[in-house]
Amino acid sequence: MLDVAVASRFGRHLLDVEGLSAGQLEELCDHAVEMRAARAERRHRSLLEAETVALAFFEPSTRTRVSFELAAKALGATTVDLAVEASSVRKGESLVDTVRTLERTGVTMLVIRHGSAGAPNLVAGRSGLRVVNAGDGSHAHPTQALIDLLTLREALGSLQGRTVAIVGDVAHSRVARSNIHALSAVGATVRVAGPPAWVAGFEAWPGVDVATSLERALVGADALMALRVQLERDAGADGPALADYVRDWRLDEDRMGLANRGAPILHPGPTNEGCEITAELADGPRSLIGRQVENGVPIRMAVLAAFAGAA
C-alpha cells in the first residue's frame, strides 16, 4: 500500500530527474508497478480526490497528455484541461498570469508542457502550485525517463553496469537529457550517438560517451534508444540532410545485430517509421515501444501520487 504521507521526500515539484537519487528513481518505478495493479483492480480510486490537476500543454501531445489525464482520474483527482488555443494565452496573457489564475480557481497541481526550456522552473517559483514537468523545450522530460527506466528494468533487470546507447538528435532532445540523468543515476553507462551537430557539447557531460558512428554506438550496447527525428524542426545549417541521416543512422534489424545479443530497442514516440527506425524493427520482437506506452499511465500515477504528498 502506498503511503502518500511519506512521499514528500521527493520534493515539491518534478522539474527534472536530475537531483533524484537512484533509490528514489527505483522507488517511483516500484510505485508504478503497484499502480499498474491498483488500476487494474480499481484500487486507490480516491487517493487524489483532494487534488485538482490542470493539464497545460503549450505544445502538441497525445500520449503524454492522455496518460497524465487518465493517471489523475484513476486516482480520483479532478482534472482540467487548459485548452491553450481557446484560453487567454491567445489574448497574450503571460504564462505566469495564466498559472496564477489557475491557482486562484482551486487548481493544486500543474502538469505543464512548454516549448521553452525552464518554463516549469519559472512557474514553480512564481506560484503555489506543485508542478510536474511534462516536457520543456530541449531540457527535460522526467516522466518519459521514468517510463524508459521502468521499461528497461522490466526487460533487462538491474541496469547497473549496462550500456544504453541513445541515437539521434540528442542536442535538441529533452528525452535524451532526462534519460542521461536517470540512467547515470542507476549506474548504467550512457552512450550518445548521432551526426556531429546533434551530439555537439555532450563530450563534456561527465560520464557520457559520444559515439561518432552507428557501429560505435551499437557494439557492446545492451539497449538502444532511438530519438524521434523532428521533421517539423528546421534542421538548420549544421544539421544533416534527412537522406544522409537515414543512410548513416537509421536503425534496422541488420544493424541491431552489432549490439549485444537480444538488445531491445526503445523509442519515445511518435516514430517516423522508415526515418530513424524501420517499421520491421519498430514492430519486431526487440521493440519495447508498445511497452513504453503501456507504462505511461502507471508511471504518471506514481508521480502524481508522490508529488501530491509533498505539501
Partner: peptide, 19 residues
C-alpha cells in the same frame, strides 16, 4: 549567434538552451 540565448558550453548543453 544563430538565435542563441546563452553561451555555448556545458551549462547550455545541460539546460538544453539554444547557445
Amino acid at each position: 549567434a544563430g538565435g542563441g540565448v546563452m553561451r555555448v558550453g556545458p551549462t547550455a548543453t545541460r539546460l538544453g538552451l539554444p547557445a
